[in-house]
Amino acid sequence: MKALGVLQGEFLESLLRDDEAPPRVAIYRRNVLAALSGALEAAYPVTLRLVGAAFFLEAARTFARATPSTSGDLHAYGGEFPEFLSGYSHARALDYLADVARLEWACHESSLAADAGGFDFEALARVPPQRAAAIRFTLAPAVRLVASPHPVVSIWEANQPGRDGTPRTTTGAEHALVWRADGEVRVERLGEGEWGALAAFARGATLAEASGCLGADAAAFLGDGLARHVRDGIVAAFAAPGEAM
């Protein structure tokens, strides 16, 4: 008799194929595809709205057969869907679609990321002013930064529930900050310089290095921008000069 692992391997294989299946096996096949496409629909509601249910389901099926789920937790499924969409021939006319999906996956990850601890203002006050430029700020676990040559934030905003789907602009690059306030994920459009400074923090840059991204906006960022990001819990911690990260 076949070993358990062989029986299971053959059965799972039969669920992922696209041929004729006995009716009872077809029930499982439908269940599996419903679970996987349902997880994608939950993570990518704007993408779904942009392409419509039938297109989305067909894309989800094609993706599912090529990219099996690797976790018993469906929230972990679908991170490669944007990459799949960027090469999906039927979506070629929608050049912004994959980047909108990237923004949505960033939102999905943000929603489940760890909570940040409180910012240690007292420790910051103890850093001597002459060493402030060497501080390395770190971002909260729920922060994600997405940049695109397409107006992805405008498209995302226009396709939220209750909105009519018309973006404020249809051209131009946009830089998105994804963060979380009171458990709720927020998406915000940032200027390129400010976005670049936060991205530099995410890479472990010092305050001086990050300010280099800002050009003429450096003064405004150091005055109000940084303070706002700290207040909103976007910048969550820092390493003082000489401290290990």
């Binding site: 008799m1 358990l4 299971q8 996987l36 099996p68």
Partner: peptide, 24 residues
């Protein structure tokens, strides 16, 4: 069971009711 070979069906799949499955 719902996975084999690292691939997940994310569905509750039937076991073959054998001595091997029982012991496992």
């Amino acid at each position: 069971w719902s996975s084999i070979g690292g691939r997940h069906a994310n569905d509750l799949l039937p076991l073959p009711y054998t001595e091997e499955a029982l012991a496992l």
